[in-house]
Design a protein around this nucleic acid. Structure first.
Length: 292
DNA sequence: CCTCAGGGCTCTC
DNA sequence: GAGAGCCCTGAG
């Protein structure tokens, strides 16, 4: 996989294990939207881009060659997902799960945006989360034009710290509005440094994140996995809970036990296996309902 | 350890 | 139309 310039942006040539739908719809991100032609539009680090695939080339329209390293990091291009999948396929459940989403890659997203987005995710639906994050960007971020339309960057900690509770509620934060405000303020003031938390090992980093309002074990694990490169994190949400209880564990096992079991079983690949399982669970349980 | 409420909206009945 | 449930956390 190598990145080159083309007339409207940059292109990643000869990708492997790279599918836009698998990547953008496996539950790790909220600001990528599919367009009618199958391409995806996202606002990444303040810049709107349109991404589409022809054969095995990924075109990123709106990006410049100066963003090469950024997108290499963002799409985790240096990692051999084929090798990871090969290893995980020794587990029969994962073997089946991987078949449903061969092209998943774990994105390295902006830490602050992910912190706030996953605070909003608690007891919420993906459609609502996306809408709320979009509203927050519109209200508190900055306007950027692209393809003759206006897009909005996700606000910085300083921008979001200025928000008031009513504004956040208008965005659709609901009872999470005070958590969002409090966390944005603490980070804007520099009382908590996400960069420093990223330097810690997974367990210490999770503990630090849980000091912030609105962050419990599940949300902390999502932040670690989707923005801090902690690939041994294993977020346990309702879907993972259902699929783990169905295939591996008793139906009454606690969330904490599921997390411990998975991190033991999958080790440094726990995060990758979580993504395959999440996508599989959502697709399969919904359609076939293999558990009540 | 436990239970419970908590935006707002969608899906189910 | 009511009621459950949602990528869950904080308070009791």
């Amino acid at each position: 996989m190598k990145i080159e310039e083309y007339e409207n942006g940059i292109v990643i040539r000869d990708t492997v294990d790279f599918d836009l739908k698998d990547i953008f719809e496996c539950g790790q991100c909220f600001r990528w939207n599919e367009d009618t032609d199958g391409s995806y539009i996202g606002v990444i680090s303040g810049k709107p881009v349109r991404v589409y695939k022809t054969l095995n080339d990924i075109y990123i329209k709106g990006a410049s060659i100066a963003d090469k390293d950024f997108f290499n990091f963002y799409f985790d291009l240096d990692r051999d997902y084929g090798k990871i999948k090969e290893e995980l396929k020794s587990d029969s459940v994962l073997k089946e799960a991987i078949k449903h989403a061969e092209g998943i890659r774990i994105l390295s997203q902006d830490m602050f945006e992910i912190v706030i987005s996953f605070i909003i995710s608690s007891n919420n639906r993906i459609f609502m989360i996306k809408r709320t994050v979009e509203n927050i960007s519109r209200m508190y971020g900055s306007k950027v034009a692209f393809e003759g339309r206006d897009y909005y960057s996700f606000p910085t900690p300083d921008e979001l710290a200025k928000a008031d509770l009513n504004g956040l509620k208008q965005c659709g934060c609901g009872f999470r509005a005070p958590y969002v405000k409090d966390t944005a303020e603490v980070i804007a003031k520099g009382n908590v440094s996400l960069e420093k938390i990223r330097e810690m090992d997974t367990d210490d980093a999770a503990k630090e994140l849980m000091e912030l309002k609105g962050i419990g074990p599940k949300v902390a694990d999502c932040i670690l996995l989707f923005s801090m490169q902690k690939y041994d994190a294993f977020p346990v949400d309702v879907w993972i809970k259902r699929i783990m209880q169905y295939f591996y564990l008793a139906p009454d096992v606690s969330l904490k036990k599921i997390r411990e079991f998975a991190r033991n079983k999958f080790g440094n690949f726990a995060g990758f296996s979580q993504e395959y399982l999440f996508y599989y669970a959502r697709d399969t349980i919904k359609k076939e309902g293999f558990e009540k």
